[in-house]
Design a protein around this nucleic acid. Structure first.
Length: 467
RNA sequence: GGCGGCAUAGCCAAGUGGUAAGGCAGAGGACUGCAAAUCCUUUAUUCCCCAGUUCGAAUCUGGGUGCCGCCUCCA
């Protein structure tokens, strides 16, 4: 069965066939590194990270590119405000990006190019566009001639006339048409600049992605993805530039997530309803954030609140409890021949796995994937105990970790060790319980709780966990 | 004006023709020395409203109501 992917270009779910065998060329628009990224950005990075993981899980060989925009108006403004260079600003927030992205379990891309690293390639592409009549220069600025690109508007499903009619931007005298956009911007005093055939200046925003995608992935890529606000104008413009320059289709599948809102309103600085990913993961388990964001369909809008993150945290706890229980059972169960019941259980596990694949194959339905994980946990909690063969327990544990790994959850908490002193206390409490000295046992339990160790007495021994 | 999305239990949320997943919260019960974890039962005769198509609709069609987004930098 082929996977299906919803394509913004056709507004339909399509069967996913990469250009070349099992190779997938994937480009995701990255952040402008003038600040910490916010929780809305996080949704995009995290969702597409999960899709990449799933594609790899399904045996695709994914080349994943995510850029850093390190030169634009916002960068210049912020650097000026901070009294540092644009380069220093970029270096700093690229580092900060990786701190937060790593914490959220977002895997590193194969390539993380910066716009300023590909200036020569940008100039080359602009030259090509000028040669082909898709661009024109006016006094050191270069613009893309949207009227020349016949399919302009095909991604956002607008036609140029309507766009022009609805254009709220001021008509700049320099542009031939209000929808034309800058490929190259003439240097203003004090701005970083590069030498070009049109004089000193810097690239426009849209051209960098066209160039980086092509440089690292080729003329035609499989998946181009990003936030919903990029559909127009950014991705529309990328198509115009890339297809204008190469004459080939730019991206075969365009994927866009839904907005992340705060109280049903778009998150924006002017409304003051703005959360950086960093402040959220300082307060809550990053895996809970992942679980929260993957619990809804990626194309639907999602409302952010700390209350909902807390709900997700509880759910995550349930998953971890199951995992910890399995680990504990594994340590006490015996290795023995599989009974027919054991075999039946293993078959069931396999059915859950197939269900997971079935729902994820259908346009990455992570919400259903998460549901399968919870159903699996219920199955384990109900039907596996210390009498099960260790083989079954290990298989259960591995499946939970395997499917959780695809979504990037239940991966963080590893094997923890206890200090000797605490182990002694736990033993002491065991003895007290043997002697039915409940008072002492409870006192030790309370004492350990204050130290962040929770004890749970199970039929097959005491289990501990850290909070 | 053009384009588009959404409306499912207290909360979150999946489900696009076959008789309402999953999570959180709540109630009752089991287990436990007590807890915790876990399990069982329970919580939408019903999916914004009206009409229609159909043997059958949350899912399709028409109409209505409400909310939101894009068309301008933004993931």
């Amino acid at each position: 069965m082929l996977m299906k992917i919803y394509n913004t270009l056709t507004r339909k779910k399509e069967e996913f066939k990469p250009l070349e065998g099992k190779k997938v060329r994937m480009y995701v628009c990255g952040p402008t590194v003038y600040n910490y990224f916010h929780i809305g950005n996080a949704r995009a990075f995290l969702v597409f990270d999960a899709f990449r993981r799933y594609l790899e899980y399904r045996g695709y060989e994914v080349t994943y590119v995510q850029n850093f925009t390190d030169i634009d108006d916002k960068m210049i403004k912020r650097a000026e405000k901070e009294g540092i260079t644009v380069k220093e600003l970029a270096d700093r927030f690229i580092q900060e990006y990786f701190k937060d992205a790593d914490a959220l379990g977002i895997k590193r891309a194969d390539y993380h190019p910066r716009a300023t690293e590909v200036i020569l390639d940008i100039i080359e592409m602009i030259k090509t566009l000028m040669d082909k009549g898709y661009a024109y220069e006016v006094d050191g600025d270069v613009y893309f001639k949207t009227r020349k690109f016949k399919e302009y508007g095909k991604l956002s499903h607008q036609n140029l006339e309507e766009l022009e009619a609805g254009a709220r931007i001021k008509v700049e005298d320099k542009k031939q048409n209000p929808m034309d956009f800058a490929l190259w911007k003439k240097k203003k005093p004090g701005e970083p600049s590069w030498l070009s055939p049109w004089g000193e200046g810097r690239p426009g925003w849209h051209i960098e992605c066209s160039v980086m995608a092509r440089k690292f992935l080729g003329d035609t890529i499989d998946i181009h993805a990003g936030g919903p606000d990029l559909i127009f104008p950014h991705h529309e413009n990328e198509i115009a530039q890339s297809e204008g320059a190469t004459g080939k289709p730019f991206a075969r599948y365009w994927m866009h997530i839904g907005y992340l809102n705060i109280n049903d309103e778009k998150m924006s600085k002017s409304l003051g309803n703005f959360y950086t990913a960093r402040e959220v993961i300082q307060k809550h388990d990053p895996e809970a954030v992942r679980l929260f964001l993957l619990s809804a369909h990626y194309r639907n809008p999602i409302n952010f609140s700390y209350e909902l993150i807390q709900q997700a945290e509880k759910g995550l706890e349930r998953l971890y409890n199951a995992l910890e229980n399995l680990k504990h059972l594994e340590s006490v169960a015996e290795e023995r021949e599989l009974t027919p019941q054991d075999k039946q259980l293993l078959n069931k596990f396999n059915a859950y796995k197939e269900e997971f694949i079935k729902v994820m194959d259908d346009d990455f339905n992570t919400a259903d994937g998460v549901a399968v994980l919870f159903e699996l946990v219920k199955e384990f909690n109900t039907n596996i105990d210390e009498k099960a063969s260790r083989k079954v327990i290990t298989a259960a544990k591995n499946l939970l970790l395997e499917l959780g790994g695809v979504l990037g959850i239940i991966q963080q908490r590893g094997e923890e060790k206890l200090e000797e002193e605490i182990e002694k206390l736990i033993k002491k409490r065991e003895e007290a319980r043997q002697n039915k000295n409940w008072e002492l046992a409870d006192r030790i339990r309370d004492e350990l709780k204050e130290k962040g160790i929770i004890l749970e007495d199970t039929p097959h021994g005491t289990r501990w966990k850290k909070i």
